[in-house]
Amino acid sequence: MSRPSSKKRKRKSNRKGKSASKTKNVVGLSSLHIDNENKRVVVFTEDMLLNQLRRDGPKIEKSFDRLCQGELVQLSSLVSRTAGLLYSGLAIAQQNNDEIREACAMLLINASNSFGSAVAVLRMGYVLQPGIILRSLLEALSTSLHLLQKPEDLTAYEEHKLSSTKTIAAAKRALPPFGQLYGHFSDNFVHIGRFHKTINPVREYAKGNEALELNLSSLRIAAWLLYVTTELAFNELVKEPSYWQRVEQGYMYNPSEAEKEWMTEFFELDLA
């Protein structure tokens, strides 16, 4: 008598398993929009973010890599040079109890991470957001340039009392192109501009994408500014500095004519 009962329970269990497998891939409906004019219904499912990350994201990233391979190699080379200076400089600053340069190294290392995140976000198909990230990178660079000129402001920096207005002004004094390049980010990404006033679809990249080209230009600017600031902070680690000339009271920004020509080509901007 017990065996038939056991078989029935087993069959019942199997039916439950089949039912669960059928419902496993069901996606919930979040909302829908009825477009009477065009006679269509737009459905919004609950897995839209997951689809963006897992289904569409890899396709967009492949399109970015295909179009921007040369740019990525160039940027990676410059960022790698910066990283070597930063980590070596941080170690030396810590050994020498050099609080100013230790603070600058930490700022610049975090700025390097911001740069990497801007590249990653652009690679995922978002064209408005990288510039906003890079603008925060410029704040870190300006603070470093300020502290290198005015070490007496370290306490104000540590107490969060050092204003960005002062640091930006100091950065412009030390590095004349900084003002123009800072304005480039503000005009195109931070303030409400033309890219804010239109929808920027998150989709695969194709040749001639204006927003992509603008972002690549911005990445070149940010990578260069990061290197130049790092070279100033740890100038003694560079055998032949490219941008800073030693003067009586420190260093002066003074790239060679050849370097200026390279900069104009690299940025695709006139910095004369």
Rank of each mutant, 00 (worst) to 15 (best):
residue 44 F to T: 02
residue 238 V to Q: 07
residue 261 E to V: 15
residue 111 A to W: 03
residue 25 N to E: 05
residue 103 A to W: 02
residue 192 I to V: 12
residue 51 N to T: 11
residue 3 R to Q: 13
residue 228 V to A: 13
residue 19 S to E: 00
residue 38 N to D: 12
residue 236 E to N: 08
residue 53 L to D: 04
residue 153 D to P: 01
residue 38 N to A: 13
residue 7 K to R: 13
residue 32 L to H: 14
residue 186 S to G: 09
residue 14 N to W: 03
residue 245 Q to I: 12
residue 45 T to H: 12
residue 254 N to V: 01
residue 41 V to I: 15
residue 179 G to R: 07
residue 30 S to V: 08
residue 104 C to F: 06
residue 125 G to F: 04
residue 138 L to P: 02
residue 32 L to V: 06
residue 217 S to F: 00
residue 154 L to T: 05
residue 182 Y to F: 15
residue 218 S to P: 08
residue 135 R to F: 10
residue 133 I to F: 07
residue 180 Q to V: 11
residue 233 A to L: 01
residue 121 V to P: 04
residue 237 L to N: 09
residue 264 T to M: 08
residue 161 K to P: 00
residue 138 L to M: 14
residue 67 L to M: 07
residue 253 Y to G: 01
residue 39 K to Y: 02
residue 86 L to R: 05
residue 196 H to D: 07
residue 151 P to T: 02
residue 1 M to Q: 11
residue 31 S to N: 12
residue 179 G to I: 01
residue 58 P to S: 03
residue 193 G to F: 05
residue 17 G to R: 05
residue 133 I to R: 06
residue 98 D to I: 04
residue 209 N to E: 15
residue 20 A to D: 01
residue 202 V to R: 11
residue 2 S to Y: 06
residue 162 L to P: 05
residue 143 T to R: 12
residue 180 Q to S: 12
residue 271 L to G: 03
residue 80 S to T: 10
residue 16 K to W: 00
residue 14 N to Q: 13
residue 254 N to E: 12
residue 136 S to M: 07
residue 25 N to C: 01
residue 68 C to Y: 04
residue 256 S to P: 01
residue 270 D to V: 06
residue 229 T to L: 09
residue 109 I to H: 10
residue 76 S to I: 00
residue 6 S to V: 11
residue 24 K to D: 00
residue 253 Y to F: 15
residue 10 K to T: 05
residue 16 K to M: 02
residue 255 P to Q: 01
residue 37 E to W: 03
residue 141 L to D: 05
residue 74 Q to V: 06
residue 83 A to N: 12
residue 175 L to K: 08
residue 15 R to H: 04
residue 76 S to R: 12
residue 180 Q to P: 01
residue 86 L to M: 09
residue 44 F to D: 14
residue 13 S to I: 01
residue 66 R to F: 10
residue 227 Y to M: 05
residue 22 K to C: 00
residue 67 L to R: 05
residue 122 L to W: 03
residue 249 Q to N: 14
residue 24 K to P: 00
residue 20 A to L: 00
residue 73 V to P: 00
residue 250 G to W: 08
residue 7 K to V: 10
residue 211 A to F: 13
residue 31 S to K: 12
residue 139 E to Y: 06
residue 245 Q to H: 10
residue 52 Q to M: 12
residue 47 D to R: 04
residue 176 P to V: 07
residue 46 E to G: 04
residue 181 L to Y: 02
residue 257 E to C: 00
residue 244 W to K: 03
residue 202 V to D: 01
residue 124 M to R: 13
residue 50 L to V: 11
residue 46 E to H: 10
residue 54 R to W: 01
residue 111 A to G: 14
residue 166 K to D: 13
residue 99 E to K: 13
residue 258 A to F: 03
residue 13 S to V: 02
residue 202 V to T: 15
residue 185 F to T: 06
residue 235 N to C: 08
residue 39 K to C: 09
residue 16 K to E: 03
residue 172 K to Q: 15
residue 158 E to R: 15
residue 228 V to L: 00
residue 184 H to G: 03
residue 89 G to V: 03
residue 216 L to R: 07
residue 269 L to E: 14
residue 30 S to M: 08
residue 137 L to D: 08
residue 149 Q to N: 09
residue 254 N to C: 14
